[in-house]
Amino acid sequence: MTDEGKTHRGARAIETWLTRSASEYTYTIELTGAHKVDPDHYLATHHLEGNFPGGAVDLHYCFTLSDGLIENLVIEP
């Protein structure tokens, strides 16, 4: 998975990223859109507001499924 331009591979690296991301800032998140690009690719858009630099952002979660599991995730503005 890739977030803030950094790629994290493997369960341990992703768990570390998730723990850090969840505790670094306080924010609210709202799903504002979602659609299926093709049978294996999806895009979800979330609006975040909180105490991070800039205070508000719309993020696009582009992910690929393989055998019902997320194979790749890229989070970007």
Rank of each mutant, 00 (worst) to 15 (best):
G68Y: 02
H46G: 05
R9V: 12
T32K: 06
E15D: 08
G33K: 01
V57Q: 15
V74A: 13
F63R: 00
S23C: 08
W17L: 01
G50F: 01
H47V: 08
A22F: 07
T28P: 03
D40R: 15
H35F: 14
D38H: 06
L73A: 03
S66T: 08
L18T: 02
H60Y: 12
R12S: 11
H47R: 09
Y61F: 08
D58V: 14
S23E: 15
L59D: 09
D67M: 09
D40T: 15
C62N: 15
K36V: 14
E24G: 00
L31H: 00
A22T: 00
G55P: 04
V37Y: 09
Y27E: 08
G54P: 02
G55C: 04
W17D: 00
Y27Q: 01
Y42M: 09
A44H: 07
A11N: 08
A34D: 12
E24L: 12
G5D: 10
R20N: 15
G5A: 06
I14Y: 03
Y61E: 05
E49N: 10
F52G: 04
S21H: 07
G10H: 04
T32F: 10
I29Q: 13
T7A: 11
H35E: 15
P77R: 10
T28C: 05
A11E: 13
A34Q: 11
S21F: 13
F52H: 02
D58G: 10
K6T: 05
I70D: 03
V57L: 14
E24N: 04
G10I: 02
A22D: 09
A11P: 01
D67P: 03
T16A: 14
